[in-house]
Simulated assay, not measured.
Amino acid sequence: MFDKLNLGDLGKVLEEIQEKAKKIQEESESKIFTAKSGGGLVKVSANGKGEIVDIEIDDSLMEDKDSMQILLISAINDVLKMVEDEKKRVAMNLMSSTNPFGQ
């Protein structure tokens, strides 16, 4: 199995994989994910790094602190799940598209 393995070629392949992974990660981090809760009363956006970049709260919630908190928690959890799912998807795509053994 390993008798045809050229370590020089393997090094090149690993460098290519690393460069591809870096490019994919940068693209993923620049994406914006948005989740809504309460029928759109609360909207939370996060970038691919999982950083919250925007929160929109409908004016009707300003007098109902408890509802606002529940809807914020829900939207934040949803958007962070979206970011995590994207990270998993990117990792799986990277793994499936690279084969250092060339088979």
Rank of each mutant, 00 (worst) to 15 (best):
K81N: 14
G102W: 00
Q69L: 05
K12H: 13
L7N: 13
E29N: 06
L72M: 10
K81R: 11
G39H: 07
D78V: 01
E16L: 05
D66H: 14
Q69N: 14
A21E: 06
V53Q: 03
N93C: 03
G11I: 08
I73L: 14
L10K: 02
M1A: 10
G48F: 05
I32G: 04
S60W: 01
E56I: 13
S67C: 12
L14E: 03
S30K: 15
L10T: 07
D3Y: 11
I24A: 15
I32F: 11
S37K: 05
I52F: 07
S37G: 04
G48E: 00
L7K: 04
G8N: 14
E19V: 13
Q25C: 00
V13W: 05
I76D: 05
D3N: 14
L94P: 01
F101S: 05
I57V: 15
V79F: 05
A91F: 07
M95R: 13
I24Y: 13
V13L: 12
M62L: 12
I57N: 06
G8Q: 07
E84C: 04
L94H: 09
E16H: 12
Q18F: 09
D9Y: 01
E84I: 03
R89S: 13
S28N: 14
E86G: 01
L10Y: 02
V79W: 04
S28R: 14
I17S: 03
S45M: 03
